[in-house]
Design a protein around this nucleic acid. Structure first.
Lengths: 202, 202
DNA sequence: GTCTATAACGAGATAGAC
DNA sequence: GTCTATCTCGTTATAGAC
């Protein structure tokens, strides 16, 4: 901040044009898929030109990669917050499910669930980043499941990793189908049941 | 069949150019998504021109609609076959899961699971047909679940419809994620567990 | 950092000959 | 039923002025 006149520009810089672009692109991917939008869509919404977009993100592949990077980072932070709360495992899982439900409330699909559908059409760097997101979720879920079983608040058989994968897939799929009906309850009914089946009896 | 010389053309007609087009298009949608392929891709594979494709399917939207129609019809027939076998409900469910596993073995996603991701970008006629496919599956699953519970071969609480929706979503999601890892076992481990959790103890 | 202008290509679709 | 030829538009991406 050099002087007062820079306030407006500062405000834009604080938010960051690059971040605004990512915000719009993220919503477009989550609602239409990576192959379902163009630079023209983003430029139109932000009132800038396609050429300006290329200044911030040289290629669409680069934009996609940075999109997953930011999304995974935010998710990782959210998962760490849940863990830090140190509430019992069943409540941690319920909070985790709320992350998904909030995405669906915005009429969006999970970013990486959407990209998983288009997986074979995406550049390798994006493919790797998508698997990284799933790995992150799976590891976190497995950790909570294991801890809950040891604490006696959860009951299930077999390796926590297998159950973590089942839950991750089930949540992603419940979102996928629920979106075709624009019906949040469809997701929540399934998610609640999946969690309650894990709860240890009192 | 008018004479012997028509054999070659008959053979092609029997298979039907339209059906060959649908075969290729179906695989492309299941691997790349509806927004991930073009008429040029199909034409190239079949060695015909884009103009010929438009003779059989006036628009891409029309092709998409017919694709879901054929897929749903085949699925409906497969589900009726399972029902007609009159084996116990747990075995019917296991056979149902094998339908999905076979799709995944071909490195494909369920056609309608894939289209569900792109739902908001598709023409209304396709959107309706996708929901129709899900409705079909849900109704069949609910029927088998209810029958199994009455026969004492399955055990679960609550409305069969809720559980049918959970299973449908879980299978679709398990496929979606497994495909990102090109790992069939990821699907099968989750599917087997979902079914075994329903089995009534002896 | 944003613009205008344009390149270079691929998309869906149509007209009309054979 | 398939072809050639063409249209129109949208796509990603770049060059160079401001």
């Amino acid at each position: 901040m050099t002087d007062v006149t820079s306030t407006a520009r500062e405000a834009r810089t604080r938010h960051g044009t690059a971040n605004q672009i990512l915000d719009v692109a993220e919503r477009l991917v989550q609602t239409r898929g990576f192959n379902g939008f163009s630079y023209a869509d983003i430029a139109g919404e932000l009132g800038i030109t396609k050429a300006s977009l290329h200044y911030h993100f040289r290629t669409k592949a680069e934009l996609g990669r940075r999109l997953i990077e930011r999304y995974s980072g935010a998710f990782r932070a959210a998962l760490q917050d849940i863990e830090a709360s140190e509430v019992p495992a069943p409540e941690q899982l319920a909070t985790y499910v709320r992350l998904y439900a909030d995405v669906l409330k915005g009429e969006r699909m999970c970013l990486c669930g959407m990209l998983a559908a288009e997986h074979s059409t995406l550049p390798p760097a994006m493919q790797d980043a998508i698997r990284g997101f799933f790995d992150l979720n799976e590891a976190w879920l497995a950790g909570v499941l294991e801890q809950g079983r040891e604490a006696g608040t959860l009951r299930f058989d077999g390796p926590p990793q297998d159950l973590a994968r089942l839950l991750l897939g089930a949540f992603e799929g419940a979102m996928l189908v629920a979106r075709s009906y624009a019906d949040l309850a469809r997701f929540e009914t399934s998610a609640k049941r999946l969690l309650s089946d894990l709860a240890a009896p009192p």
